[in-house]
Computed example of a mutant assay.
Amino acid sequence: MYRFDKADNQQATRFFEMAVGLDPTFSRAHAGLSFTHFQNAFQGWAERQPEVDSALKAAGKSLIVDDRDPAAHWAMGRALWLRGSYDQSFCELESSVDLSPNFAQGHYTLAFVHSQIGDPGTAIAASDQSRDLSPFAPMLFGMLGARAMALVRQGNFEEAAFWG
């Protein structure tokens, strides 16, 4: 799923579907399935609304299975952002890092969402935190991009160009 191309995302979907078929109580597999639907919607690889609905459904199953799993809240936060439910998205993403302060993906996604529609200062701090926690993450490009977008929103164009 981290190769960010349609064929590999489809394969990841099949693997996550197999995992939840084998163990419906595997919260992380439901969260991963939500991410693949998120990618389909975000990248435009499939019709958006059904993929948003599927991302929400899989994230909901992840939360039902284990509401203490930070990845479940992360998946729900991403899906809610796609739907345009920004306040709810922030709440879920905050829950993900409250449950696990070392959850780099949660910090990154907070940076991503805040860089676009929230507080740019919070986005910068969350981007820095995510990179400190996982400096070789497959989402490193996004961590840097979220920081750059937040700096643009602050009018710091030269620094944004550096980070971009």
Rank of each mutant, 00 (worst) to 15 (best):
M1I: 06
Y2T: 09
Y2N: 14
D5N: 15
K6A: 11
D8L: 13
A12N: 08
R14F: 10
M18E: 14
V20P: 12
T25V: 10
T25F: 08
S27R: 09
S27T: 14
A31L: 10
F35L: 14
T36G: 03
H37N: 13
F38P: 09
Q39N: 10
N40G: 08
A41M: 04
Q43P: 00
R48M: 04
Q49G: 02
E51N: 09
V52G: 05
D53S: 06
D53V: 03
S54K: 15
A58R: 05
K61P: 05
L63C: 03
I64P: 01
I64V: 14
V65K: 01
D67E: 08
R68A: 12
R68F: 10
A72S: 13
G77P: 03
R83W: 03
R83Y: 09
G84V: 01
S85T: 07
F90I: 06
C91R: 10
E92Y: 07
L93M: 08
L93F: 04
S95K: 15
L99F: 07
S100C: 11
F103S: 01
A104N: 02
G106C: 07
G106V: 01
G106A: 06
H107E: 03
F112W: 12
S115E: 03
I117Y: 06
P120N: 06
D128L: 13
S130I: 07
S130N: 06
L133T: 09
S134Y: 09
S134M: 12
P135I: 09
F136H: 13
M139Q: 15
L144D: 12
L144F: 12
A148E: 09
A148Q: 10
A148K: 10
L151K: 15
V152P: 00
R153P: 02
E159W: 00
A161G: 11
W163Y: 13
